[in-house]
């Protein structure tokens, strides 16, 4: 755990300089007062500064940021991280130049990275945090693409009166398609096959 020890005229001063060194705010710090300051005799003799130890509270958001920054440095990518906490989830949006490689074919690389970050952030933790990685709104764009695809293929299935089998998708993507076509009386959807090759079938109702 990252920590610093600081001296100061008052406890507050010592804490402030430690926080500045660590580059964190008071909420994400653990503060221990090692020694209270003492004015000494007549303010000269035997005066002692305050001594504090400030360490970083290793929140999931802190662990995720540390790991991602190291990964991007090793990949020589300049990435800006924006972390939002929502309930128990961390939404991390990545932005920068040439981040297409972080997305990969149909989000393959982004999903792999997200999976690894989830494992690392939750390693030996009782409370699990879900980490969702996104690159410049890619997830939302992909969702819209899948919804359009779903509607188009539903029409096709209806017109041809035959089943349409989609390519294999991960659970999140399948859910988007099922949701988009839920509650229709002309077609219905189900999944078949085994992970990671499970795919959706759109079937016309007769």
């Amino acid at each position: 755990m990252e920590a610093v020890e600081k001296l100061g005229r008052t406890v507050e001063e010592a804490v402030a300089s430690a926080l500045a060194d660590l580059g964190i705010s008071q909420e994400s710090a653990v503060i221990e007062v090692l020694e209270e300051p003492s004015k000494g005799l007549f303010g000269i003799l035997g005066s002692r500064p305050a001594r504090v130890r400030v360490s970083v509270r290793e929140t999931p958001s802190y662990r995720a940021r540390q790991l991602l920054e190291k990964i991007f440095e090793a990949m020589s990518l300049a990435v800006n991280l924006e972390i939002k906490e929502k309930d128990n989830d961390l939404l991390i949006n990545l932005s920068g130049n040439g981040l297409g490689i972080l997305i990969g074919r149909r989000g393959e690389t982004l999903n792999a990275l997200q999976y690894l970050v989830n494992l690392c952030v939750n390693k030996n933790q009782l409370q699990k945090t879900k980490v969702i990685l996104d690159v410049e709104g890619y997830r939302q764009r992909r969702e819209q693409t899948l919804e359009r695809l779903a509607l188009r293929l539903a029409e096709k299935a209806k017109q041809r009166g035959r089943n349409i089998v989609l390519e294999p998708m991960n659970p999140q993507e399948r859910r988007i398609i099922h949701t988009a076509l839920q509650g229709r009386d002309d077609i219905y959807t189900y999944s078949e096959g085994e992970e990671p090759f499970r795919k959706i079938v759109i079937s016309p109702r007769r």
């Binding site: 990949m75 490689i101 792999a112």
Partner: peptide, 24 residues
Amino acid sequence: GKVIGRQGKIAKAIRTVVKAAATR
């Protein structure tokens, strides 16, 4: 087990990320 995972899922994810870095 921590770097391979069930059915090699973790190993596959590591390879995917490394492949992306290598392509660059």
